[in-house]
């Protein structure tokens, strides 16, 4: 599959495309089985109220194949990705899960996630929460660094407003807060299901 990847797809995962050149659709089929497996592991003990975030590193192999390496288990609401990849691989970004003990799913990126994606300069950052998959994509309009504290505070303000003033659900509020912050920080945003087929929602 990797051998059939087009130059443009490789350029996308290498972070070489401009915002205007970003694809409308992204197919992560090569890694969806692992992503779903990590989701299942995240909620393995949810019946007893225990969840654990899981993370992995998204890499592009020398043959153009996409894969998830360095699987790590985190805590109930945090995880530390292992970013150490081999010299023959290109680090694309990270993947992690968003489980919640009461079974809430469909939660997009946190303010900390967005700050992490920006500050690490990752091309693509993925989150899976149940059947929903979200992606942030770095562009030429993304700043080199941001304050995590500021971004988390911005997230809180926007999220609270959407919940109360627009009567949105938690998932909807998180999603549109993500879009606001993507716009503010020049990130592209993709949304899809656990089959790995993502569609662009916002390009800066």
């Amino acid at each position: 599959m990797g051998e059939r990847r087009t130059r443009k797809e490789v350029a996308f995962y290498e972070g070489k495309l401009k915002s205007s050149e970003l694809p409308e659709k992204v197919n992560l089929a090569e890694v969806t089985a692992e992503m779903n497996d990590l989701w299942e592991k995240s909620v393995l003990n949810i019946k007893v109220g225990e969840v654990r975030e899981h993370a992995a590193t998204l890499v592009l192999g020398s043959n153009g194949s996409l894969r998830l390496d360095n699987v790590v288990e985190g805590g109930p609401s945090s995880v530390t990705p292992d970013r150490d990849v081999g010299a023959d691989r290109t680090l694309v970004g990270t993947f992690h899960t968003h489980p919640y003990p009461d079974g809430t799913t469909g939660m997009a990126f946190s303010g900390a996630d967005i700050a992490y994606a920006i500050n690490k300069g990752d091309t693509m950052t993925l989150v899976q929460s149940g059947q929903d998959t979200f992606a942030l994509v770095h562009t030429e309009k993304t700043p080199a660094s941001v304050s995590r504290a500021v971004l988390e505070a911005e997230f809180d303000v926007l999220f609270d407003e959407y919940v109360i003033e627009d009567a949105m659900s938690d998932q909807e509020a998180a999603l549109v807060t993500n879009l606001d912050l993507c716009k503010r920080y020049g990130l592209a945003f993709y949304l899809g299901k656990s089959d790995g087929k993502l569609e662009v929602v916002y390009k800066p």
Binding site: G74, S78, H96, G111, D132, D156, I164, Q171, E172
Partner: peptide
């Protein structure tokens, strides 16, 4: 570290606010 705890704190805060206002959580349609 990717620390998502504030996301979940925001969720809990939203739920408390809805409860205080007597509002039910709406159905999600992303």
């Amino acid at each position: 570290v990717i620390d998502d705890s504030r996301l979940w704190q925001a969720v809990e805060r939203a739920r408390e606010k809805r409860k205080a206002l007597g509002i039910e959580a709406p159905t999600t349609d992303l």
